[in-house]
Simulated assay, not measured.
Amino acid sequence: MRAAVLLGPRRLVVRERPTPRPGPYDVLVRLIAVGLCGSDVHFYEHGRVGDLVVDEPLVLGHEAAGEIVAVGSAVDESRIGERVAVEPQRPCRRCRYCLTGAYNLCRSMEFCSAPPVDGAFAEYLVVPADFAYPVPGTMSDAAAALLEPLSVGIAAVRKARVRPGSAVLVAGAGPIGVLTAAAARAHGASVVVASDPLAARRAVAAVHGATRVIDPLEQRLEEESVDAFVDASGAPAAIDAGLRALRAGGTAVLVGMGSPRVDLDLFLVQSRELRLEGLFRYVDTWPTAIALAESDPADLDALVTGSVGLDGLDEAMRRNGDADVVKFIVDPRR
């Protein structure tokens, strides 16, 4: 099969790789649509994300959808031909995290595109059968792939304890921020403020769940004005402003990848008894994401800027930060 392989920072080549074979409880998915994520771009530009370092050739990509073309010996053959969205995790299923429902924290996790595990910018991918979710015929392939970033948004608002009537601030209106806003509205938030310095991204957020958008370079929310804060920017200034906007007892969820360290107003956190939550992937979000994607707040197709083949991935990586880009979709068949 053909696959786009990262050899080092800004060194991406298309090569022939062996087509993987499914294990007994796996399915082989022919990939049709794979979203380009900010973490993919971070690996492309820097060769690492936090402690995850690319020290050998790696296939990136984890926002994936396609068609099952083969199954393992323990999987019903009737699944061949199903269109599926991929949850790109392979937990061990035996450790205490897995057994208590926090499988995203499995210390033996194999996650697509997290070194040294190859990802989905390839023609085929082997997936645990129960992590390949059938999608309705009305859902496009691109939308099925974008259930992954929508799942991040769902996991974030769950952690932020968003409920009917909540007021929520989301910093950063890239795909994760926009879909977090959509998820917050779907979970009943009555006020969803999206903050981003780029007008084009604020405009996207305004039609995907945000009830108000602001330019953080010109405006800040009043202190103690929201119940929950989700940072999808990774910008230290945005994190500080978001914490100050939280009411006493509120929850902040840190999703964005930016500076590895930030200054923290510890007295603010202590005196308001704020809860700070990290977010690392998701647990059991795809059924909710599929249901939400069929409703108006999460018009996933509208987020697609364009589609490229494997040979166009390098250029898409370089353009991903442009103001007019929301989400590139890669079709590995091209």
Score class of each variant (00 low, 15 high):
2 R>K: 14
2 R>Y: 03
9 P>K: 02
12 L>S: 01
21 R>V: 10
24 P>Q: 11
27 V>W: 05
30 R>S: 09
31 L>V: 03
33 A>W: 07
36 L>A: 05
37 C>D: 00
37 C>S: 00
40 D>K: 00
42 H>K: 12
50 G>T: 12
50 G>V: 10
51 D>R: 14
55 D>S: 04
55 D>R: 01
63 E>S: 02
78 S>T: 14
78 S>Y: 13
79 R>Y: 09
82 E>Y: 11
86 V>R: 02
87 E>T: 04
89 Q>I: 04
89 Q>A: 09
92 C>L: 09
93 R>F: 15
94 R>K: 15
124 Y>D: 03
130 D>F: 07
138 T>Y: 12
139 M>V: 08
153 G>D: 09
164 P>C: 10
172 G>P: 10
172 G>W: 10
175 P>F: 10
175 P>G: 09
179 L>E: 12
184 A>N: 13
185 R>Y: 08
186 A>C: 03
193 V>Q: 09
193 V>C: 04
193 V>I: 08
198 L>T: 15
212 R>M: 11
213 V>T: 15
214 I>H: 14
216 P>E: 12
220 R>Y: 12
224 E>P: 01
231 D>A: 05
232 A>V: 04
233 S>Q: 03
234 G>D: 01
235 A>C: 02
238 A>I: 00
241 A>L: 06
252 A>N: 06
262 V>N: 01
268 L>Y: 09
276 L>D: 05
279 L>H: 03
283 V>M: 13
287 P>G: 10
292 L>K: 00
294 E>M: 10
299 D>A: 08
301 D>P: 07
302 A>M: 03
307 S>T: 08
316 A>W: 04
323 A>G: 13
